[in-house]
Design a protein around this nucleic acid. Structure first.
Length: 456
RNA sequence: GUGGCCGUGGUGGAGUGGUACCACGUCUGGUUGUGGCCCAGAAGGUCGAGGGUUCGAAACCCUCCGGUCACCCCA
């Protein structure tokens, strides 16, 4: 048979053990934070019925959905595009078995047929935390707190969460006499503020057909502080300023009041004020947001670290209504887990004890006659909870040590004729060449001590 | 979807018209039960694919494929 050159589908990746161990470390750590706030794990199939996904993301996005058809399949299937629509579907389907508020997290791959780019893949992990069924702003503040703590637990401290409200943005549109479709252009242009600057946004708005006078009024509001000002006092002062200017626009006032409440809850939840800011120019792409929106950005001067937002989310009170007679208030946040991993990689943020392999002990085999003794030792160590590899094949001891070193296995058990005769095991810790001999009955304890694993 | 750049042994690179080189990695050895260093040696390449120009192409031209970056969009 002809050999096929091994290739990956475009935009997809293999994760080799060493990298996967680091990814799993990140995923497990954030999952623990989610659970600390009472969020439950949820898993849904990677395939959904087409009808579940179609019509939910807009025409442009819909073209990026992967379709997955079985040759004789009767069902039309597609790979999930995100975790939010499947959540809505799953919740509506299993409502009777769930209670409100329903808090869940899901860390799983999604698929998009986009052109791959740096840090952007066709198969990538999303990490979503959502709370269904709470109308009040305590839910918004809660998911923001979750995101902040997750980022902190991973070791990030130089970031800030920017908050805004879709109602406020729409209100600003009303304030200048815009409504309906032109609002989308307005959002898109404002969103580019930090990228193209005040003048750039002004230019785009004028180009999109908005008259000069309204554009000036928009810029006076949104462009007033292109600099990010963190802290609760600054946020409240700015909210008050907006309240004054937009006093005739009820929708804007509603949005401002919501934000005020979110800030109050965040402060009470001890979210550090250096990590919080009101940013009226922050938009977020997705159309389905209906209330507060938020985005965590890295405060780094390093252009190499400009990877977009670390996390983002908002309230989307209409989404569940897609699968249900009446909708339910819902708010969620998504950690940009792929970006976080890239950053942690770049910054070397993984804790030192994080190993390159799951193997903790390599049991060397001096010769075939001694293999049974090696196997016995290995099973004894495994019963104590250790991950143990017995050297396969035959090689000189030097080779076996070199192998352990290359693999990153921290400890080697040496069990030769002398040790066997004396009823002992010798351990060698590669990191510092430290060698100890102990009675074979105590070998598991000894290994754990050498690996610095606390006893029970 | 549009445009720029790139594609050389497992990996990263040098080589701009005369038939391929470096580093790392891999393997073997430096004899008896101890790795990371050092030394000696070895294996490994249809120079992304196909076509064209030329006496001769990894190099020049065309097409395709793949990668990458920017735009669009987005995590």
């Amino acid at each position: 048979m002809e050999k096929i050159t091994p290739r990956l589908p475009s935009g997809m990746r293999d994760f080799l053990p060493e990298e996967l161990l680091r990814r799993q470390f990140v995923i497990e750590r954030v999952a623990r934070v989610f659970e600390a706030f009472g969020y439950e794990p949820l898993q849904t199939p990677v395939l959904e019925l087409e009808e579940t996904l179609l019509g939910k993301y807009g025409a442009d996005a819909e073209k990026l959905i992967f379709h997955a058809q079985h040759p004789n399949g009767k069902e039309k299937l597609a790979l999930r595009y995100d975790l939010t629509v499947p959540l809505a579907r799953a919740f509506a389907l299993h409502e009777s078995k769930l209670s409100l508020p329903f808090r869940r997290y899901q860390i799983a791959p999604v698929w998009r047929a986009e052109r791959p780019q740096r840090g952007r893949y066709r198969e990538f992990y999303q990490c979503d935390v959502d709370c269904i069924g709470v109308e009040g702003m305590e839910a918004d503040a809660e998911v923001i707190s979750v995101a902040v703590m997750a980022l902190q637990r991973l070791g990030f401290s130089d970031f800030a969460v920017k908050l805004n409200n879709r109602k406020l943005l729409t209100g600003i549109g009303l304030y200048v006499g815009l409504e309906g479709p032109p609002l989308a252009d307005l959002y898109r242009s404002i969103d580019k503020l930090d990228k193209i600057g005040v003048d750039g946004v002004r230019e785009e708005l004028l180009k999109s057909g908005i008259a000069a006078e309204p554009v000036d009024r928009i810029m006076a509001l949104v462009g007033s502080g292109a600099e990010l000002e963190c802290g609760y006092a600054a946020a409240r002062a700015r909210l008050a300023h907006f309240r004054q200017i937009l006093s005739d626009v009820p929708l804007a006032l509603e949005g401002l009041a919501e934000l005020e409440r979110v800030f109050n809850y965040l402060e009470a939840s001890q979210v550090p004020e250096a990590m919080i800011a009101f940013d009226p120019s922050m938009v977020r792409g997705l159309g389905y947001y209906t209330g507060p929106i938020f985005e965590a950005v890295l405060l780094s001067a390093d252009p190499e670290e400009r990877v977009g937002s670390l996390a983002g989310g908002g309230r989307y009170d209409d989404l569940i209504g897609l699968f249900r007679k009446t909708s339910l208030p819902t708010v969620g946040v998504s950690l940009g887990i792929e970006r976080l991993i890239v950053l942690m990689e770049k910054r070397g943020m993984y804790p030192e004890p994080l190993q390159r392999t799951v193997v903790q002990v390599l049991v060397s085999v001096f010769n075939e006659a001694l293999r049974p003794a090696a196997l016995r030792l290995a099973s004894q160590l495994r019963l104590a909870g250790l991950s143990v590899e017995v050297f396969a094949g035959s090689a000189k001891l030097g080779k076996q040590l070199a192998y352990a070193d290359k693999r990153g296995i921290p400890l080697v058990a040496l069990l030769g004729e002398d040790e066997l005769a004396a009823g002992v095991v010798k351990f060698k810790r590669l990191r510092d060449q430290h060698e100890t001999v102990c009675p074979s009955a105590e070998s598991a304890q000894q290994a754990q001590a050498l690996l610095c694993i606390p006893q029970n």
